[in-house]
Simulated scan of single mutants.
Amino acid sequence: MKTKHQFTSLQKISILLIFFFSCGIFAQETYENSISFSKSDSNLKWSPCPDFMPEGCNIAVLQGNPTEKNTDIFFKVPANAYIPAHTHTSAERMVLIAGELEVTYEGEQPQTLKEGTYAYGPAGKPHSAKCGDSPCVLFIAFEEPIDAMPIEKE
């Protein structure tokens, strides 16, 4: 004997299907647009680097908001520029787009990045770099908001 509020399995499935279909009709899907940039793209907005970085250093935000997580940038320095020792709150995932860049992480041997080289920099680990005889452009993906803190020499 069924009571007033008991439903058969078929009725339960029917109610669920009606619910899911009605939600789908009213749900609006939103998608981000895809993007692509080259190092010389005229749509890039280049901004100066922090004051302790070399003169002529510039950054272009490719995707994201630098004050939030997961932002991608191009980092550009002139030929023969020295990037002083600094740290970041975030880990860095990098690919050298142009030039040749020698990077030295504290306690490690220098690594020379050539065009197309991938590199990973751990969060909080001090490092410095020297650009070679032509300008360097580095793609960097930051996991955390972007920052760069100089290492004070004692």
Rank of each mutant, 00 (worst) to 15 (best):
E102N: 04
T112K: 06
E100Y: 07
L138E: 02
A79I: 12
Y118P: 00
G107L: 08
F142G: 03
Y120I: 01
R93W: 13
A85W: 10
G99K: 09
A123S: 07
I140H: 09
S47M: 06
T67V: 04
G56Y: 02
V137I: 07
Q109M: 10
G107N: 05
I15S: 15
L44N: 05
R93I: 11
E32F: 05
I35S: 07
Q28S: 12
A123H: 05
C136R: 13
E108R: 15
T104I: 10
A119Y: 12
Y82V: 13
T30F: 08
G124W: 08
D41F: 02
P135M: 11
Y31K: 15
S38A: 10
H88C: 08
S36F: 11
L62N: 00
P54R: 11
N43G: 03
L138V: 03
S9K: 00
M53Q: 07
N70I: 09
N33T: 13
S34F: 15
M94R: 12
I73L: 09
I97Q: 13
E68P: 04
K45M: 05
A81P: 05
V103D: 05
C136K: 13
S42F: 09
E106Q: 13
F26R: 09
E100K: 10
H86S: 07
N58Q: 08
S38F: 14
E100G: 10
D41V: 02
I15Y: 15
V77E: 04
L17H: 08
L17C: 09
V137M: 01
L138R: 00
C136G: 13
T112R: 07
T89D: 15
S14Q: 14
A98K: 12
L17G: 10
S14R: 13
V95E: 15
F26C: 06
C23W: 01
S38I: 08
G121R: 08
M94E: 15
A91R: 08
F139A: 11
G121L: 09
E55Q: 11
I83P: 01
N58E: 01
E55F: 06
V103E: 03
I83R: 03
Y82Q: 13
C136E: 13
R93V: 10
T71K: 09
